[in-house]
């Protein structure tokens, strides 16, 4: 671990490291005021989490001995820019019996990797494809 990894001392980031916390379009927490919401300078876009923030929370989770939580945050960081509809489509495809063949999941994984740069998530979906095949989930459900 390098010396500049975030630790418990940096948490909560919004209080201890406000310099690191930025909204989707670069605004600091101090700028996300009610007046700014009212005059339209702050919109829903500014109130979204960023991939960076999730990566920072992953560092903190790892520092306090929660590696699996950190991995979830890292997978999530890759999904931040993926549109909601795409997320719902992939989720649907991962449900039992939705994909009729392994290829459909493999194709979804390729899109995640190629279109969205989601390496971990793509590998995760490919892993699901392997397991589903092994456990016979690629069959029609009524």
């Amino acid at each position: 671990m390098s010396a500049d990894k975030l630790t418990v001392a940096d948490y909560p980031l919004a209080e201890k490291r406000p310099d690191l916390v930025r909204g989707k379009r670069g605004k600091s927490v101090d700028e996300l005021t009610l007046d700014a919401v009212l005059d339209g300078t702050v919109t829903m876009e500014d109130l979204r989490i960023t991939g960076l923030a999730l990566a920072q929370q992953a560092e903190i989770a790892r520092a306090v001995g929660r590696p699996t939580l950190a991995e979830n945050f890292e997978r999530a960081a890759e999904l931040v820019e993926v549109p909601g509809e795409t997320i719902m489509e992939i989720y649907e495809l991962l449900r039992p019996g939705r994909a009729q063949t392994k290829d459909q999941l493999v194709a979804a994984a390729r899109d995640l990797r190629d279109k969205h740069g989601a390496q971990r998530m793509a590998a995760f979906v490919e892993e699901a494809a392997e397991v589903y095949e092994r456990r016979g989930l690629f069959r029609k459900r009524f």
């Binding site: 916390v21 927490v29 989490i49 929370q57």
Partner: peptide
């Protein structure tokens, strides 16, 4: 606004 830092996503 809690979403922006993600602090409340921790355990």
């Amino acid at each position: 606004r809690l979403r922006v830092s993600g602090d409340y996503l921790q355990t």
